[in-house]
Simulated assay, not measured.
Amino acid sequence: MARQFTRADRLIGQFDAALRTLVPGVAQQIRLSPATADIQDEPLDDDERRRAEGLMRINHTGEVCAQALYQGQSLTAKLPEVREQMEEAAEEEIDHLAWCESRIKELDGHTSVLNPLYYAASFGIGALAGAVSDKVSLGFVAATEEQVGKHLEEHLHTLPTGDRRSRAVLEQMAIDEAQHAQQALEAGGARFPAPVKLGMTLMSKVMTKSVYRL
């Protein structure tokens, strides 16, 4: 018989997930990074390296936010199958977190010092969305993944041409995020109206501007 987890069990799990997300070097990938050994960068000058590092830091923080969003939603989701979907999506996103962190290290950079702040904010938003309804919660996932996809597309155009390893990571992330968005809609997620999506876009711009160098 499957164990029935209590709210206390789930809270302990959320705390563990937060530590695994925020403590550098803890996130463990399941899939190998797309930046395999046979993909080598062309020489990058200092400006190109700093630009690549900043972009990958943004993407890493985006994955921190995704983890927090999914964890918050799983805590308050009404239906067990929706809770399980959120938890599964969070596990898949761990790969992205580990890939981005690894690439930042390769670029001699650091993850954002603002990650705990954005984790807390995203967790709260996710928990609130889950408390409203599963339909809203799934819709928020779809809309968020759409925003992430736009960021990834923009970054693929602005990465230094010679940064092949970061490009490989972002290309696979874009495929995964599009799949997560589609799965959320197919599971019954609401399609958010344009004004809501505009607000989400403005909030994401605050994040990208603040973590590019921090």
Score class of each variant (00 low, 15 high):
residue 3 R to A: 15
residue 6 T to L: 02
residue 7 R to F: 13
residue 8 A to I: 14
residue 8 A to E: 15
residue 9 D to K: 09
residue 10 R to C: 04
residue 11 L to F: 10
residue 11 L to V: 10
residue 13 G to E: 09
residue 13 G to A: 11
residue 15 F to T: 10
residue 16 D to G: 11
residue 17 A to R: 10
residue 18 A to F: 10
residue 19 L to E: 13
residue 28 Q to T: 14
residue 34 P to K: 11
residue 37 A to Q: 12
residue 38 D to M: 06
residue 38 D to R: 07
residue 39 I to R: 12
residue 40 Q to P: 08
residue 41 D to E: 01
residue 43 P to W: 01
residue 45 D to H: 02
residue 46 D to L: 12
residue 46 D to K: 13
residue 47 D to C: 11
residue 47 D to L: 12
residue 47 D to T: 13
residue 51 R to N: 09
residue 51 R to V: 09
residue 57 R to Y: 04
residue 59 N to H: 08
residue 65 C to A: 12
residue 66 A to N: 04
residue 68 A to Q: 05
residue 69 L to N: 02
residue 70 Y to E: 00
residue 71 Q to G: 09
residue 72 G to T: 04
residue 77 A to V: 04
residue 82 V to F: 01
residue 82 V to C: 01
residue 84 E to T: 00
residue 88 E to N: 09
residue 88 E to S: 09
residue 91 E to N: 13
residue 95 D to K: 06
residue 95 D to W: 05
residue 97 L to C: 05
residue 97 L to T: 01
residue 99 W to D: 01
residue 102 S to H: 00
residue 102 S to V: 01
residue 110 H to I: 12
residue 111 T to G: 07
residue 113 V to M: 13
residue 115 N to H: 07
residue 116 P to Q: 00
residue 118 Y to W: 14
residue 118 Y to K: 02
residue 120 A to Y: 04
residue 121 A to Q: 06
residue 124 G to N: 11
residue 126 G to E: 05
residue 128 L to H: 08
residue 128 L to D: 07
residue 128 L to S: 11
residue 130 G to V: 02
residue 131 A to K: 08
residue 138 L to V: 06
residue 138 L to G: 02
residue 140 F to E: 12
residue 142 A to K: 04
residue 145 E to I: 02
residue 147 Q to N: 15
residue 149 G to E: 06
residue 150 K to P: 03
residue 150 K to R: 11
residue 158 T to V: 08
residue 159 L to N: 03
residue 159 L to K: 00
residue 163 D to S: 12
residue 166 S to M: 04
residue 169 V to W: 00
residue 172 Q to D: 06
residue 174 A to W: 07
residue 174 A to S: 11
residue 176 D to W: 08
residue 183 Q to I: 13
residue 188 G to E: 06
residue 188 G to C: 09
residue 188 G to I: 07
residue 194 A to T: 15
residue 194 A to F: 15
residue 195 P to W: 07
residue 202 L to R: 15
residue 202 L to M: 15
residue 203 M to P: 04
residue 206 V to N: 12
residue 206 V to E: 13
residue 206 V to T: 15
residue 207 M to E: 04
residue 208 T to P: 03
residue 214 L to F: 07
